[in-house]
Computed example of a mutant assay.
Amino acid sequence: MKFVMSDLPPRHRYKLLVSTVTPRPIAWVTTRGRNGVVNAAPYSFFNAMGDDPPLLVLGLLKDGTGANKDTATNIIEAGEFVVNLVSEHDAETMNLSCVDAPRDVSEIDYAGIATTPAERVSPPLIATAPVSFECVKRELLEIGPRQVIAVGEVLVTHIRDEFIADPEKLHVDTAAMKLIGRMHGTGTYLRNTDTFTMTRPAYDPARIDGEAR
């Protein structure tokens, strides 16, 4: 089937995107509001987008009234956030932080999330996360009525010591982190345990020459 996205309501576009663009890594984002309340929320419209400067990008959907949610509001106002990656161990706690809590309620308290202070930004790290990225806002794009795209520059990367296989060579034991990702459908997740390896091939001009003949 063919779907012309402009002909569909936003909810249907969302269903097509999240059912096909999989697996998606999860950014468990911590921010701090003007009132001092620390917010924690997971987002799967997320990925790394560069290394010079090192960039992470978040797609932050608005609420049903078209207003920014806490994460977007706090990033806009404070310009700082922390992206924490999610392991299997933290899955239930992360899921609990998805609740639509009132703005004066911290998901950190509600879900019982352990935190530790960051070095360069105000929002804390999630203490149990295998990886945390301290970020500052570089760009904020409001494209359309329902979303904000936040581009953050990574200032500090924290990787728990047990996942560093070789500190000198920066070899990371990614498999040991047991990260999870989002899949299709409501509440469907993926364990990153079924992997395979392919060697990147070198260009072979004989393949083209052979086809030309």
Rank of each mutant, 00 (worst) to 15 (best):
G181K: 02
T71F: 12
E77M: 01
N35H: 07
R103H: 10
P102M: 01
I126H: 02
G187S: 09
N47G: 15
M1D: 13
F46H: 03
M183S: 13
R138V: 06
M5L: 15
S97A: 14
D204S: 13
E168I: 10
T197E: 11
S122F: 05
I113Q: 07
L170P: 01
P54C: 11
G66R: 06
D209E: 15
L61P: 03
D104V: 08
V148P: 03
P145M: 00
T193W: 01
L61N: 14
V29S: 08
A118W: 00
V154R: 05
T188R: 11
S122M: 11
G181E: 02
C98M: 10
F81T: 03
L58A: 04
T73Q: 12
D173C: 01
P54N: 05
V38T: 13
P201I: 03
P102T: 03
V154W: 08
A27P: 07
F3T: 04
A175N: 06
T31P: 11
D100G: 12
L85H: 01
H158Y: 10
I108E: 01
N95R: 14
E92H: 00
P54L: 11
I149W: 04
N74L: 03
F196E: 07
L17Q: 02
I149P: 00
M5S: 11
D7W: 03
Q147S: 14
A111L: 09
